[in-house]
Design a protein around this nucleic acid. Sequence first.
DNA 1: CAATTTAAGTTGCGAATCACTACCTACATA
DNA 2: TATGTAGGTAGTGATTCGCAACTTAAATTG
Lengths: 166, 166
Amino acid sequence: MGLREPLKQIADCGLPIALEAMGERWSFMILRAAFNRIYHFEEFQSELGIARNILANRLSRLVEHGILGRTPCPEDRRKVEYRLTEKGMALLPAMIALRQWGELYGSCTTSTPVLVDERDNQPIQPVTIRAHDDRVLGPADLCWRHAEEVKPLGASREAELMDRVA
Amino acid sequence: MGLREPLKQIADCGLPIALEAMGERWSFMILRAAFNRIYHFEEFQSELGIARNILANRLSRLVEHGILGRTPCPEDRRKVEYRLTEKGMALLPAMIALRQWGELYGSCTTSTPVLVDERDNQPIQPVTIRAHDDRVLGPADLCWRHAEEVKPLGASREAELMDRVA
DNA sequence: CAATTTAAGTTGCGAATCACTACCTACATA
DNA sequence: TATGTAGGTAGTGATTCGCAACTTAAATTG
């Protein structure tokens, strides 16, 4: 049967919710900047080259959605700090997956700076879909089930582990 | 040092490329429908409730970007099939990551239909960033390196990684 | 202390995009 | 032949984008 989802229930899906928060122009670029330790309005503006009114609008929207926190700086009361919340940081896999796709299929000749695991300086893996036992899954391996249909993992777990080794 | 990327080279990053292809309104919803075996113009239109001119525009853009293929149906020459290409399918991790985020943080009371691995009917894992040795990485574990700085690993390790990607 | 600079916005306005509806053309079906 | 279907296009108003100028409050400089 493969990947097929009950449609007409599109509103229930997480995708429109994610797009509602992050789907506007510049939102992902702002997120990226935030991951890169850009915290202030003027920094975002000069790094991204975005119009000030648009930037103000996007920042306040991201704050409303709980993706960025907004705190006035105590040591310089002109300044405001925009910082990623937990919710915002949880977008990292989506962002990395997007950029890996862009790097792979775009005509980026040089991916000179490469994202690595700090611990051993090795590049991270491509972001993938994983089964509960860590197998990498493709579109053909996925399907939709209702909660009731999902069997809890029990004794069969051992068999699956054996399966994985083999 | 953590996650910090040489800025000013933003154009080199894959993210703007990905957003250029997928960043417009409806593009991700159309992609999602395509993964759900929606192939025809009228199907997209009625499932998504999108205006016809916008849909036509998005479909042709996705075709231009090589994300969808467009083939007239031989058996009914009124019909046209829009199908995901390899490049389009490669967006699956990004899309799943986005919807998982939306489901987790949106106020979806019910995630009734759940995406499972077809083989054993177990839900898929949350999409994560992984080190070369499969450790799950967070924002704090990542940093940017230039290609020269990345020490090569033993041959067996690399073979294993290639295996995984394929 | 006054003058200047900086940070974070806001406002106005033209250009581009979105969305709704009606229309069109080629083809298939009754 | 008449009717319906599939995949668009065209016209029109409502939104949104993007640029530039302006504002306000706080810091810095002379």
